[in-house]
């Protein structure tokens, strides 16, 4: 197996140019018409709005302005992408084996195998995956699997003009990220931290340097695997089946015995009347 590869996205140097979005769409030949809807958001420079089947990179614009727009005013920009989780929820629930882990430890949806059942959409803790309206299959970032196989850098990282998106072997990226956080801390930016270390889903192979709470960036604080619910939910269902099955068994048995022992003149209300009537 090749070395685990990934993205380190340093949001502090993102300038919101969206070159990554364009490069991604261009290389991966994703429709630029947004499923026929060319809609402007009207309240933001962000007209992409979310990651989905035809947006595999999404530059988020977070505006933090106070009432007077002077005392507090900053833009947070973040180029969002599939996190290529080490423990991937989408891969777990995919019923066809269409979602695979590659030799680069990335997560890829094989387009010739996907049936569009959409099980992976709600399984992703980050809401990354959606159906591509052109191919009618689930799509998301592949970390440019085709480019990686021939030793090229993914399109977005290549196009990024500020090195906000960095690509490379995960070991090197983790080291770089650590150094960058230390550098920012030494400059007095104590709020800088890494989102996506081993504590989150075994590690996100695409991880971020953030300067505010995850929720501010639209990221869950403690993302979890869907399978955490598998056993407790199954046991609850099995419990219900056992209760109803046993109740059925016992009520049938006792009633039969009761009917035999008590004779034809009594029983539970009119029920016995009916039974007498139909007995051969």
């Amino acid at each position: 197996m090749a070395e685990p590869m990934g993205f380190f996205t340093d949001t502090t140097v993102c300038i919101g140019c969206k070159a990554c979005e364009v490069a991604c769409k261009s290389w991966n030949q994703i429709s630029s018409t947004n499923g026929g809807q060319n809609v402007l958001s009207g309240d933001s420079y962000d007209n992409t709005r979310k990651l989905d089947g035809e947006h595999w990179r999404h530059v988020k614009f977070i505006e933090q302005f106070s009432e007077d727009r002077v005392s507090e005013s900053r833009w947070l920009m973040m180029s969002d992408v599939c996190k290529h989780c080490v423990q991937a929820g989408c891969l777990e629930v995919c019923p066809t084996g269409a979602i695979i882990r590659t030799e680069f430890d990335t997560v890829v949806i094989q387009q010739d195998a996907c049936i569009g059942c959409r099980a992976c959409l709600p399984a992703c803790p980050f809401g990354v995956i959606d159906i591509n309206p052109v191919t009618h299959t689930a799509q998301k970032c592949t970390l440019c699997y085709d480019r990686m196989q021939v030793g090229m850098t993914p399109a977005c990282a290549q196009a990024c003009p500020t090195a906000s998106i960095q690509f490379g072997p995960l070991v090197q990226l983790r080291k770089k990220a650590e150094d960058r956080v230390a550098q920012l801390h030494s400059q007095g930016k104590e709020e800088a931290y890494i989102y996506g270390d081993e504590a989150i889903l075994g590690g996100l192979n695409s991880f971020y340097l953030l300067v505010d709470n995850p929720e501010v960036y639209g990221l869950p604080v403690a993302p979890k695997l869907p399978s955490r619910n598998l056993w407790r939910s199954s046991f609850a269902a099995a419990f219900g089946a056992a209760v109803l099955g046993l109740w059925g068994l016992v009520s049938l048995r006792t009633r039969k015995r009761g009917a035999k022992a008590e004779g034809p003149s009594s029983g539970d209300g009119g029920g016995d009347g009916g039974k007498k009537g139909a007995a051969p």
Binding site: L121, F126, G127
Partner: peptide, 10 residues
């Protein structure tokens, strides 16, 4: 956390 996820279109 569940509110940062996408619907399944079911």
């Amino acid at each position: 956390d569940v509110l940062f996820t996408a619907p399944a279109h079911w």
